[in-house]
Amino acid sequence: MTNASRSVDEIDRQIIHALQIAPRITWTALGEIVGRSPAATAQRWERLEAQGLAWLIAYESLGTRAAMAFATVTVDMTQRESTIEALCAHESVMALSEGARASQMHVTITADRLETLVGSVLDAVALIPGVQDVHARFVARLLAEGASWRLDALDAQQRKLAEHSAIRSAPGTWRESAGPTFDDDKKALADALIREPRANIAHLSDVVGRHEATVRRQLTALLQSGAVTVRCEMSYEVSGWPIEQSWFLRVPGGGINALTAAAREYRGLRLVAMTIGDANIVITALSRTLEESAAFEARLVDSSIGVTVTESVLHLRTWKRMHRNMGKDGRSVWSGPGEVLRPVPGSSGSTR
């Protein structure tokens, strides 16, 4: 067992699980769930966050941040380290990991629209020193994503209490957005929430210069519509689900629903996306063992006639996840790209 593993006990796991369900729950309500005072609960969370073991993020959905691609980036091995650093520093790179081939990086890239992604971002990535080739698969639609992933640390009564708080504050569950759903006023509120995912209504009201009742109504609309998602992330190394793998699949049109249903039954599911390219479905999942990951792959292939795996990627080391740089020990090391994505000191405990 690693030192990182010893730094997360059962109460910590319960706090993380509750924040996965209700990321904007008050410390008072969260303390009641885990049997600790609000102050002690907040202190535990601050330690987890400071150690890079767990953190909160807020982000616009694919429906609003309209373009995404999964790219395989081939790098010059003589410049590998500096190229990884440059890729991680790029503001459009959401995630970056390496698999079995040391010369290939697996990169998730986003942009405000497809034209920008193709005509600007991918070109810029291709010109980074050390990048030799970029093979992109474009996302047409997200069918499931990581905000719905859960630990199994709370009992049924604790989950019920957390779910009740989620209804009142903000659900920690991704909802597929129908597309851009907010005007400039709501965009300003969305940016404020992305900076401080747990900021209370009074603080958000001060930031955007609007009445608290207006902010509360607009915030509820943003979260319930799926335009903005708030979620709790944690280090895979201490989650009990340390293995991350992605599958690129070719699925006949009639089998996509069956495949998606089979994938959603798996507790470790992180992502299902429809893509354009040699694979039309991409799935990412966590597992506790390699054997469990192999069994999940077999379940996907057996879900419908004609399903084939065109590529399988075992993510051996993750350098960036959801715009956060990750250290070699799997912990978050913050070095975000822009003001909209940069946490404000002290923001993690601002919801009362």
Rank of each mutant, 00 (worst) to 15 (best):
A4Y: 12
S7D: 08
I11K: 04
Q14E: 06
Q20R: 06
I21P: 03
I25K: 04
V34W: 09
G35C: 13
S37E: 07
A40P: 02
A40L: 02
W45G: 00
E46W: 01
L48T: 10
A50L: 09
A50I: 08
Q51W: 06
Q51I: 07
A54D: 00
W55V: 11
A58R: 00
G63R: 04
A66Y: 03
A69W: 08
A69N: 11
F70K: 08
F70T: 02
A71P: 03
T74L: 05
V75H: 09
M77D: 08
T78W: 03
Q79H: 08
I84A: 03
L87T: 06
M94W: 04
S97I: 03
E98W: 01
A100W: 07
M105E: 04
M105G: 04
I109F: 03
T110F: 01
D112M: 12
V118E: 12
G119H: 15
V121Q: 15
L122D: 11
L122S: 09
D123P: 02
A126R: 09
A126W: 04
A126P: 00
Q132I: 07
V134D: 00
H135A: 10
A140T: 11
E145C: 06
A147P: 03
R150V: 03
D155T: 01
L161D: 11
E163T: 14
H164K: 12
G172P: 10
S177N: 07
P180Y: 00
K186C: 07
K186P: 00
L189Y: 13
D191W: 00
E196K: 14
E196A: 14
A202K: 09
H203Q: 15
H203I: 13
S205K: 01
S205W: 01
D206L: 14
V207A: 01
V207D: 03
R210E: 12
R210Y: 06
E212V: 07
E212K: 11
R216D: 05
L219C: 09
L219W: 11
G226L: 11
A227L: 06
T229Q: 04
R231L: 09
C232M: 07
E233Y: 13
M234Y: 11
S235I: 01
V238Q: 11
V238P: 10
V238M: 06
S239Y: 15
E244P: 03
E244V: 12
W247A: 05
W247I: 01
F248I: 02
G254D: 04
L259S: 02
L259H: 04
A261E: 14
R264Q: 15
Y266F: 15
G268K: 10
T275C: 10
G277C: 02
A279M: 13
N280C: 14
L286E: 13
L290F: 14
A295K: 14
E297I: 00
A298R: 02
A298N: 01
V301P: 06
D302K: 12
S303N: 11
S303F: 09
S303P: 13
S304Y: 15
I305E: 12
I305Q: 10
G306K: 08
V307W: 07
T308C: 04
E311I: 01
S312D: 05
V313Q: 00
L314M: 06
M322E: 10
D329Q: 08
R331D: 13
V333E: 15
E339V: 11
V340A: 01
P343H: 14
G346M: 10
S347A: 10
T351L: 12
